[in-house]
């Protein structure tokens, strides 16, 4: 309900404002609301669509995966969808919008999506789209911390979820121009840890391929991404050029 109020208020602020809501599920993501469609469409129409989406998503996901507690959502998919939508708007007309993405994220990070998410973050950075993130889950999200840090968005983990609207309207409703002279939450510390490509687990230290910068948690004979063959595994020998240790941040 508070998010709906936030959507309405964004639409209220300027008649040129547009809102697109993308739902992110366990195995799929989809557009649930697009304010540009028809004028009379109201934000309430989002709710039934959202329910429908959740149903479809549940039926589409394999049951057996749910044993390991709360799964992660397909953040990379919805980020890419958002970026695609933005690109479409950029190319479709003479309008020069100043888009931004807000991730309202509740589930824990899925380290398996590391590469896909980082790629979306960098393409957002290239197209000058800030990614704001509002984490409503229990723990901080390292992905979104990095996303907001790299793209110049705001990362916030509200203390009280009852006042979500106040957080949303105070911080995330601010247009990009006004952000230059307003006090906004500063990043307290960003978790820059990466996931390895081989086992998709978050690591502090690892090996990276000097050719394509792929990250591995253990020494490999051959890079699985670019296929370059590494030299002898001599982690204590600094002269080995191909198996370089990643400096922990």
């Amino acid at each position: 309900m508070q998010v709906l109020a936030f959507l309405n208020s964004v639409l209220l602020l300027n008649q040129l404002n547009q809102v697109v809501v993308i739902a992110t599920g366990f195995s799929s993501c989809g557009y649930v609301f697009d304010s540009s469609g028809s004028v009379s469409q109201r934000a309430e129409s989002l709710l039934p669509k959202l329910e429908e989406f959740v149903e479809n998503d549940e039926s589409g996901s394999p049951r057996d995966n749910s044993v390991n507690g709360v799964g992660s959502s397909l953040l990379s998919g919805s980020l890419s969808m958002a970026l695609c939508y933005i690109q479409r708007v950029f190319r479709s007309g003479p309008l020069h919008p100043q888009p931004r993405i807000l991730c309202l994220h509740g589930s824990p990070d899925g380290p398996g999506q590391y590469v896909a998410i980082m790629n979306s973050i960098f393409s957002a950075q290239r197209s000058m789209v800030p990614i704001d993130s509002c984490v409503i889950g229990a723990q901080h999200s390292a992905f979104l911390q990095q996303a907001s840090y790299i793209t110049g968005g705001v990362y916030l983990k509200p203390q009280q979820l009852d006042g979500l609207f106040q957080y949303l309207s105070t911080v995330f409703a601010t247009d990009l121009h006004s952000r230059n002279f307003l006090q906004l939450p500063k990043p307290v510390g960003v978790d820059f840890r990466a996931s390895c490509f081989c086992h998709k687990s978050t690591i502090d230290m690892g090996f990276i391929c000097s050719v394509c910068l792929s990250i591995f948690c253990k020494h490999q004979k051959k890079c699985s991404t670019c296929g370059s063959i590494f030299g002898q595994a001599q982690t204590n020998d600094p002269s080995v050029s191909e198996g370089k240790r990643e400096t922990p941040v």
Binding site: L12, S169, T170, A173, S178
Partner: peptide
């Protein structure tokens, strides 16, 4: 109210939103 709010400078809009509740 809507038209007036939209005509305001960006910062003023934001203040209204912030003070709304």
């Amino acid at each position: 109210c809507e038209a007036i709010l939209r005509s305001m400078p960006p910062l003023a809009k934001k203040y209204v939103l912030q003070l709304l509740f």
